[in-house]
Design a protein around this nucleic acid. Structure first.
Length: 578
RNA sequence: UGGGGGGUCGUCCAAGGGUAGGACAGCGGUCUUUGGAACCGCGAAUCGGGGUUCGAAUCCCUGCCUCCCAGCCA
């Protein structure tokens, strides 16, 4: 939440120099600016429909639209809710969208608009279209309209109502508005060309009758304008110069231009299409994300496994990381499937710079230092962030009984490259002492439950006066001081790069990863980790970046793993095992 | 079989007739009190076939592959 107050990253400011390559959209904007095409203005807009939560795919569009505006002198970007379908839209979504946008670090000043604010104007435009003989009221049913539309390869047929007089159309349309007809009894259509090879041009529907409560206009209207009619006119009303949208709207551009050419409008914005983001192992479709939420397949829109902005936030992502990611992937027209790695890498990169370090043992194994005085407690000074000296230091208590990570001990060292604890092996406890394993204890299940060590008092602080080399360093928590915590480890939501790839008759939920959440309830963390604010982001040394969940309490902190640290030992081990 | 788009390293993005480049991933190394970070180095691509040209990722022809469109959704 506090990030919203931070100015956007300016690290890349030098990349804006003219020698840097620009994407094709910025290229067009620059050329238009140079030629004075839109009177030297740059005005974009981000036009979400409030029918779901924003996701990382929207972030791409947001960064593009707000970015293009920001980069140009006097450039502006409007926030406009495309709320023309009352059946799907809700106030909750309007609020979440604004919140996510602000959190991402964008500002639209007073320029927040709603397509529904233009309903009256839009209605006037429709009247004008009718007067010009360019629109008519069709009384065919939905089914019949579909039949008349033809197919991809066959032209459509004119509706028998196509040649109604202007007067009759005006009268009917007014009565549609007045509520004289049942839902679906009539529609207003543009009169274009039923034999057009562009299906979108075969007399597209402009208005439909729909008695539904609208989140803003309430019951004031029973007719609602369609996207194709609304969007271009809204753009024009707001004097947008460049209307950036995704590729699936490329087919609609002839209609976008037709409407604006058919009417006298303030201006004629240029629609430019770019490829939407696809992210491997997840889904970027509001409809499908909604399904995950409503079917209880995830824990709400902000489940940390969700690719939503709110999910990423709860997962521990930063706005800076998301923006850096959007920067990295670029903008083009070709379909692509972006790997998860650059996203993870972006957050690692940012968190490495800002996240304070702590020690936390996720899967504890008891270590007893036999030659350490019973009852003695020492405090060691630990560096909060080696990347940031300003972050200072903290004290961590140490005593005879500790917890280390189960992974940091083996009954037998597997190979020469293994630097961790094993009988006879010496390791360093971070910031503390060198210890050597002398023995271990197993339970009746054959599991190691206790490791005995001796320590070298000379190695206090983590280095030995004789200069002997110790390759392995383990993090640890003093048993007597440890705070029990819960940690949630997240993995990819789906098992396939493209979750939509399913067996005949199946659907995307078949590809849900059953292991996307692993709950660790026995974790032991250093006392300094108690009482952090929700959404605090930290690094657990040697493990990864974690974020304090809102379910956290000071008796029982709860952490979500944002992303693990790069783990080159895991790679070595994997390679060894073939 | 209609119309509209798109095909460049594993991935994402450049090069707009003149040495195919960057980022990420990968691999190798240096350093290291996080097997983290940082730093250094190495491999790796123009969808196919013709043509124009001294010279083609780029221009022309042709073929192939792929995405989008038949909502009273956006």
């Amino acid at each position: 939440m506090n990030e919203a107050q931070n100015p956007p990253e300016s690290d890349n400011s030098q990349e804006n120099s003219s020698t840097e390559s620009r994407d094709f959209i910025r290229e067009i904007v620059a050329a238009d600016l140079a030629s004075g095409k839109h009177g030297g203005r740059v005005q974009t807009r981000f036009p979400p429909e409030p029918n779901g939560y924003l996701h990382i795919g929207h972030a791409k569009s947001i960064c593009l639209n707000f970015g293009v505006a920001e980069e140009n002198e006097g450039g502006r970007c409007n926030l406009r809710f495309d709320d023309t379908n009352p059946a799907k839209e809700e106030q909750e979504f309007v609020e979440s969208i604004e919140e996510d946008l602000r959190w991402l670090g964008f500002d639209w000043g007073q320029r927040i608009f709603f397509a529904s604010d233009y309903f009256e104007q839009l209605y006037e435009y429709a009247l004008e279209l009718i007067r010009r003989g360019l629109a008519y009221v069709d009384s065919l049913g939905a089914e019949e309209i579909r039949e008349h539309r033809g197919t991809l390869t066959e032209p459509g047929k004119n509706s028998p109502y196509r040649e109604r007089s202007v007067e009759e159309n005006l009268d009917l349309f007014a009565r549609m508005r007045a509520g004289e007809f049942e839902d679906g009894a009539h529609v207003l259509r543009a009169k274009i060309d039923m034999s057009s090879p562009h299906i979108v041009m075969r007399d597209p529907t402009l208005y439909r009758i729909r008695r539904a409560h609208h989140h803003r206009t309430g019951d004031a209207w029973c007719i609602y304008p369609m996207y194709d009619f609304t969007h271009c006119l809204s753009d024009s009303i707001e004097e947008i110069t460049h209307s950036l949208c995704t590729l699936e709207f490329e087919n609609h551009r002839p209609l976008y231009d037709w409407v604006l050419d058919a009417l006298e409008t303030p201006c004629h914005p240029q629609q430019i299409e770019f490829a939407r983001l696809n992210l491997a192992f997840t889904l970027l479709s509001k409809r499908k994300l909604m399904r995950l939420v409503t079917d209880g397949l995830v824990d709400g829109w902000d489940d940390p496994r969700m690719p939503t902005i709110s999910g990423l936030r709860r997962r521990g992502y930063t706005p800076e990381a998301i923006r850096a990611f959007c920067d990295l992937i670029g903008v083009a027209k070709r379909d692509s499937l972006v790997e998860m790695t650059p996203l993870e890498n972006a957050v690692r990169e940012h968190l490495n710079r800002i996240a304070p370090r702590y020690m936390a043992v996720l899967r504890p194994l008891k270590v007893i230092i036999d030659n350490y005085p019973e009852g003695q407690v020492e405090e060691f000074e630990a560096i909060n962030n080696p990347e940031d000296p300003q972050a200072g230091t903290r004290k961590v208590p140490f005593s005879k009984e500790l917890f280390i990570e189960q992974d940091d001990f083996r009954e037998e060292a597997p190979n020469r490259k293994y630097f961790r604890l094993a009988p006879g092996r010496e390791i360093r406890l971070r910031y503390a002492y060198f210890i050597t394993c002398t023995s271990f204890v197993k339970n009746e299940m054959g599991e190691v439950i206790e490791v005995h060590c001796s320590y070298d008092p000379e190695s206090r602080g983590g280095s030995s006066p004789d200069g002997r080399r110790v390759r392995g360093t383990s993090h640890w928590v003093s048993a007597a001081h440890a705070v029990p915590a819960q940690v949630r480890l997240y993995d990819r939501l789906f098992t396939k790069p493209n979750p939509n790839e399913v067996e005949e008759g199946g659907d995307f939920t078949d590809n849900l990863n059953p292991a996307s959440l692993e709950l660790l309830t026995e974790c032991m963390v250093e006392p300094n980790l108690r009482g952090l604010e929700a959404e605090s982001r930290v690094q657990f040394e040697r493990q990864g970046y974690f974020c304090v969940d809102r379910d956290s309490s000071s008796e029982r902190p709860v952490f979500n793993r944002t992303v693990s640290l790069r783990d080159s030992w895991a790679k070595i081990e994997k390679a060894l095992m073939g």
